[in-house]
């Protein structure tokens, strides 16, 4: 790796500093530090059980990290320490949104309603916490129309507009994945965390997903942090790749660098017994 400044170290949107997460005796993440570049797509990869989802859970307030800092810097300059915030404020104030590996839509609600829930906060403010809304205040009507417009916009982008009034649970799997991204985008995030968005998608859907993510980054100034196993997605769209293994960062750089990093190859493919020494020497273990 050269010593030149990397794009993600210059004004990063999220700085993860010395993050450690222990569950009793199990160290899920150990002293992990990396930056998520503003306006970039950062991929977090690693073998199963490497601690990728745990990182997401710390970032989005599911877990309180044992040690470390998570500094979210919004484009306006405000800084938030995510590890100290209650979960709903991470979305409402720090503007971090996420999706799940196992999709978590509100299955009993319609697709449109799913997107409207994501705009709960602006609507509550506009309706004076429902009271004004019930009396038909004009500010509320305007906000409500805007919310529907925003939802429509994302439904069009994700190709779900024709099914807006169907229950979310009735959608096929690939559409549910896209709806989850649309819903996350409706919160107006500056950082979008996607946990395996391409899992279970066929090649065509996977290509559409790449397109959607590129669009989000380009048109909406949203930085993306994604966990992905599908290397075609990772290598094609990410600007920056961080590799975890057993909770420790083993590689960090652009896709080309990571692809050829012997640490990564060893972690993913393993090595023959008689090569262990050579590889260990090479990677400096």
């Amino acid at each position: 790796m050269s010593n030149t400044m990397k794009s993600w170290d210059n004004n990063p949107v999220l700085k993860i500093e010395h993050l450690t997460m222990r569950f009793g005796g199990l160290v899920a993440i150990n002293d992990l530090s990396f930056n998520v570049g503003r306006g970039e797509i950062t991929a977090l990869i690693g073998p199963n059980g490497a601690g990728k989802t745990t990182v997401f859970n710390c970032v989005t307030g599911f877990y309180k990290p044992t040690e470390g800092r998570l500094v979210m810097a919004r484009s306006g300059g405000e800084k938030y320490l995510l590890e100290r915030m209650p979960d709903f404020k991470i979305s409402a104030q720090a503007k971090v949104a996420r999706t799940f590996q196992n999709i978590r839509l509100f299955g009993g609600m319609t697709i449109l309603e799913n997107l409207m829930v994501a705009q709960h906060n602006p609507l509550m403010v506009a309706s004076q916490h429902t009271v004004g809304g019930l009396f038909g205040l004009p500010t509320y009507k305007r906000a409500s129309n805007e919310a529907v417009e925003k939802a429509k916009y994302w439904l069009e982008r994700t190709g779900l507009i024709d099914r807006a009034d169907n229950p979310a649970a009735d959608l096929p799997y690939g559409d549910q994945r896209r709806l989850e991204i649309a819903r996350a985008m409706c919160t107006g995030p500056e950082l979008l965390c996607l946990d395996e968005p391409a899992a279970g998608l066929n090649p065509k859907e996977s290509a559409e997903l790449n397109e959607l993510l590129m669009y989000i980054r380009k048109e909406h100034d949203t930085s993306v942090l994604l966990i992905e196993h599908d290397m075609s997605v990772v290598m094609e769209i990410s600007d920056h790749v961080v590799v975890l293994d057993y909770g420790v960062k083993i590689s960090d750089g652009d896709p080309e660098f990571v692809k050829n990093d012997p640490h990564v190859i060893a972690a993913y493919l393993g090595v023959d017994d008689d090569e262990v020494d050579t590889v260990e020497q090479e990677v400096g273990l």
């Binding site: 991470i90 949104a97 978590r104 299955g107 609600m109 829930v117 994501a118 906060n121 429902t130």
Partner: peptide
Amino acid sequence: SLGRSQRACEQDRKMAALLG
């Protein structure tokens, strides 16, 4: 919006929190 968030909390409280 209040009713929607109540129904959302009914289905998945954690997810509702993540949406703010």
